[in-house]
Design a protein around this nucleic acid. Sequence first.
DNA 1: CTGTTAGCGCTTTCAC
DNA 2: GTGAAAGCGCTAACAG
Lengths: 336, 336
Amino acid sequence: MVTIYDIAEKANVSAMTVSRVINNTGRISDKTRAKVKRVMEELGYVPNQMARSLVLQQTNLLFLMITDITNPFYTTLARGAEDAAKKHGFRLLFGNTDENLDKENDYIDAILKTRADGVLFAPAGDASLPHLEMLRRHGVPFVLLDREVPGIESDVVLGDSKEGARQLVRQLVSNGHRDIALINGSRTISSARDRLEGYREALKLNDLPYDEARVLETSFGPRSDLSEVEAWLDRMRPLPTAIVAGNNVLAIEVIRSLKAKGLRVPEDVSLVCFDELASYAEIDPFLTVISQQAYQFGHLGMQMLLDRIQTREEPGPWRKVVLPAEMIVRRSVQPI
Amino acid sequence: MVTIYDIAEKANVSAMTVSRVINNTGRISDKTRAKVKRVMEELGYVPNQMARSLVLQQTNLLFLMITDITNPFYTTLARGAEDAAKKHGFRLLFGNTDENLDKENDYIDAILKTRADGVLFAPAGDASLPHLEMLRRHGVPFVLLDREVPGIESDVVLGDSKEGARQLVRQLVSNGHRDIALINGSRTISSARDRLEGYREALKLNDLPYDEARVLETSFGPRSDLSEVEAWLDRMRPLPTAIVAGNNVLAIEVIRSLKAKGLRVPEDVSLVCFDELASYAEIDPFLTVISQQAYQFGHLGMQMLLDRIQTREEPGPWRKVVLPAEMIVRRSVQPI
DNA sequence: CTGTTAGCGCTTTCAC
DNA sequence: GTGAAAGCGCTAACAG
């Protein structure tokens, strides 16, 4: 491997001078600079990031933890985070937890060992608390994405889940629906809680009864087996006229489960959900959704994280950003 | 930061003993081991990966370069790669090039600086050659995914693109189609070339003429503006009765473009494509596809890479794996 | 079984 | 402008 010493020797200068040329620090005569640069070219020198990190005590490495790498919401978010990180010269490592605490734990371990400069963190749920405490204890800055975790304060970027749920229900009600079911993520996840609460509030406002049997609490992530969803649909007699899905994955699985029974959206059941399905959204059945600004989640969150890292010495107060919910009306709701 | 010296001091042993406990090397009495472990717990010690990497001359870091992070083919592939990497105790960094050579170049730079132990590489195209030569020159092992690059030999995992294209055309022909168009990625990409070739061969076998005007060569990646696709569709008079799409993204965009003109799949135009659309495939219009084993691409490719890394001293011959193409017939083809 | 020494590639500090 | 020395946290090699 080519090191600064190889360069130094060949250019008849000290290693220190080479280091200065690389980092553009200190005063160096144009002549030496040119000579050193030429030798670096010749030898194909590439700085060793590890060695730099070791002495600088910072890695230039950031970490993004998401819960479902196949979900367009998170991949779009990832793109936003990556763009922001790159603009500031940071590299970005991805971790995919599949909503699984054990995997999350493994990543926390890796992050600590790697000495990442900061973490952009979509936690698996409330039980992620010890992981966050671990980061805090080791002085690793983090920004929470999409989900809060009770018991720890931090910067966080959220969507307006409660208002989103209200809007979705309102949209259904204004189309004449009065029997509206909800399929949602686990209530150990703050966004799922907020969506449930928004749903209940909206029902109440419209004098509609809340019926536990019409709410299925399951995982936000994709499942290989749809039987849980199908069983839930079977249990409901009569079938609700409309369903709210807590995210895009659940919406897709409801469509598939209905289809397995020969039922269609929106002809037989209306369906609305949180999160876009990327370009697929424009294909049938053309879902009405609460569109969250996925790219902004990542981009803004990353900026907040970088801000935190750069002002480490004089930290400001925790910041909580709530991105507004925007409803996009398509044609998955049938007026009745 | 807690270092092995802090542990050593508090446990009344040398740093070397601590190192041995951490790495489970050498002979250590159970008593000292227990004592050291206890102190590590107490102090919340986490090994510094950078320092280890520096001395060991290996980072335990692998890199996966993909061209479209929002494409289910690549995210599924990523999951396969990650699973394999993790099983062997390697960490995995992702890079997303958006089919863009400049971004790819930036990543190559980062990889070299990071001293990644190896790269799993879906190249943007033939012009990625200098990037691969760069890796080769610096002794970084890599395995190519999904696309070959003329001018350099290496391990590679491919899909059987030519056969896949033949099958898709055959399927259309057997449903009575004789006017079959193709929308494809750039011919600077080996898989696009193979698909074009398979398409031409299949036409010939069925005594159908090849018409350049019925082939659109564009990017495999998503575009913000569909006008190019729409213009192509407009130019074709009469409209073909069926279209083969070179990948899932293109298929979606054809559907959207047709829809903008009030045309539907399969009623007005039949459509088949390469790659699954994840769960979306089961939603209308239920595409008939050549399903590539995305997970296997990543998983197998990663195993080959790890193999290469571990047998660095006595390298075997380059290996080329071609994963078979499997057609999944759904209902996006209308018999005529 | 355990410790000492040297060095991985780089930058900071201080000297000239 | 440039260089020498020390050290970031860790482990390989050797010594005892």
